[in-house]
């Protein structure tokens, strides 16, 4: 790797390594984009694609993101945007979990869907998208449903789990599994003009509190559906929370939930 470091140092512009140089290094030394990215960051250099991250993230923090693994449960409305944003931010390893294929009614909002991708597995589309936008990210597609049986295996090595599910009972199961594994969970849910998010740490039981009165079935989303913008808003807030948890900055949305009403443009903080 000494040779790789020398190759990169020679071609750095200031402390930035262009994508062309990263690509040349991968080709020259027969290494993956991820391996080259790690060498760059470890050398205190920055892949130029992250230069607009640097006013808020140091190179050390960018390296921490690169070495992190985040599991995203659900790759539909919320999950699609979450995956896109995590990959662009530079999270090095992402696990996307969803058993479904795209259907026509997903096209109004699910960013990974398109007419060409109808009937394609959502995680397959996610893999293609991430490979296109950030080839240095290692993406693990899992085309199966999360359950308490496979949770421990799916979340091996993960630092944070994102709840982008569409089923209340499975969300409750996810919280239990994350609590058992000692993993922070960033919960988000949407229905029409409305949504909410909360960051949940092991033992908080926040998702249970949010759905304390749930008996069966779905929430308001069953009648309202979901438009294009609500998943983008809530997913972006979830990714902001994931970033803060990974780099240890700021104040996470813990012990409180943001309830968002886009129809009246109101955000209410609910204690959990």
């Amino acid at each position: 790797m000494e040779e790789v470091r020398a190759f990169l140092a020679k071609r750095a512009e200031g402390d930035l390594i262009s994508w062309a140089v990263q690509t040349a290094a991968a080709r020259e030394f027969r290494r993956s984009f991820a391996e080259i990215e790690e060498v760059i960051l470890e050398a205190g250099l920055l892949p130029a694609r992250y230069q607009r991250n640097r006013q808020m993230l140091s190179i050390e923090q960018q390296l921490r993101l690169f070495r992190s693994r985040v599991a995203v449960v659900g790759c539909g409305g919320l999950g699609g945007y979450v995956l896109e944003e995590l990959a662009r931010l530079g999270v090095g390893q992402i696990v996307g979990i969803d058993p479904d294929t795209f259907e026509e009614h997903n096209l109004n909002r699910q960013i990974l869907s398109s007419p060409q991708r109808l009937a394609q597995a959502k995680v397959e589309s996610a893999a293609a998208r991430i490979a296109e936008i950030n080839p240095a990210v290692i993406f693990h597609p899992v085309c199966e449903a999360f359950s308490s049986e496979n949770g421990a295996e799916l979340f091996t090595g993960a630092s944070v789990v994102v709840d982008a599910l569409d089923s209340i009972p499975v969300r409750l199961e996810l919280e239990e599994v994350c609590a058992f594994l000692g993993l922070p969970l960033v919960h988000g849910a949407i229905a029409g003009w409305y949504g909410h998010i909360a960051s949940v740490f092991p033992g908080d039981g926040a998702v249970r509190r949010i759905y304390n009165h749930w008996k069966e079935g779905k929430g308001a989303e069953q009648r309202l559906g979901n438009p294009s913008f609500t998943p983008a808003v809530v997913a972006s807030l979830q990714v902001a929370e994931v970033s803060k948890i990974l780099v240890g900055e700021g104040a996470p949305l813990r012990g409180r939930m943001l309830s968002i009403d886009l129809l009246h443009m109101e955000v209410v903080e609910v204690p959990l």
Binding site: G74, G76, G77, L78, G79, D163, A164, L165, D166, S167, I168, R171, G188, A189, I190, A191, Y194, G195, H196, Y211, H213, W214, K218, G219, A220, E221, N226, P231, S259, V270
Partner: peptide
């Protein structure tokens, strides 16, 4: 009072 919101 808040309605159940559970979609994704």
């Amino acid at each position: 009072l808040f309605p159940l919101v559970g979609g994704g």
